[in-house]
Design a protein around this nucleic acid. Structure first.
Lengths: 119, 119
DNA sequence: GGTTGACCTGGAGTGGACTCCAGGTGCGAT
DNA sequence: ATCGCACCTGGAGTCCACTCCAGGTCAACC
């Protein structure tokens, strides 16, 4: 089973090392393994989980909600229905964001057209 | 020419009164007129501008950029080409946000499907 | 004429999500 | 052996965009 150094995980996930430490500190990332010198060695699962975190974060999920999701994941398979509900709710919020952005974009484009028309 | 009380503008724009005062303080909103008692009386233009601000804000434009746009607007019609450029650039960023959200949404939906499949 | 209620001001405080810092460890290369 | 470098820790600081507060003014209604 392969392990990853902090630098590799930074490269892979796009999170800064400070952010990774912060996520571990607040429990969004489970205590990461260390080598004999006390340095972090991330597992494949850590990196996979960080992919999920990136996705949720980039779609605007607050850390508090991600933390709840993380707890469900840790609690075991019986929480899968809860996880589905949480992700479905988030999916609706993402859809709402997309719809909202698309509508605002129309306003912006109207404004651009108007500005063009008065040139 | 109609004027609006703070309460009416809150109702109209969805910004809180504190936010309106804050926007005026930082110059995102030009000094609003006052009545004899020193209370704000917003003009139709103020309200229209706030509609634009809401649109830009809700599409993620930072206040610093809105401030630049506000300055262009105040500087007069000769800045219209600059305003067009600024809005076009913002439009591209909004599009990037939409595309990004749509892609992340696919990931979330895959995860939901996966969870459903293991139930 | 007293009390409410909407509003005013300057300035301090908040919340979220990081980001930076000082001081220290261990390891491979010169 | 000493240098540089990647990394460690706990804790402080930063940034953004508000949001709240204390203390005060006016107008209107009872």
């Amino acid at each position: 089973m392969s392990v990853f150094t902090p630098a590799e995980v930074v490269e892979e996930t796009g999170f800064s090392i400070d952010t990774l430490r912060y996520y571990e500190k607040i429990g969004l990332l489970e205590r990461v393994g260390r080598n004999s010198a006390g340095q972090r060695r991330f597992s494949q699962e850590d990196v996979g989980w960080l992919g999920m975190v990136r996705c949720l974060r980039d779609t605007g999920m607050p850390i508090a909600t991600m933390l709840r999701f993380a707890e469900l994941v840790r609690a075991g398979d019986h929480t899968i229905p809860d996880r589905i509900r949480l992700l479905e709710e988030h999916d609706r919020q993402v859809q709402a964001q997309i719809d909202n952005l698309a509508e605002r974009q129309r306003y912006i484009n109207n404004k651009i057209s108007y500005y063009r028309s008065v040139l």
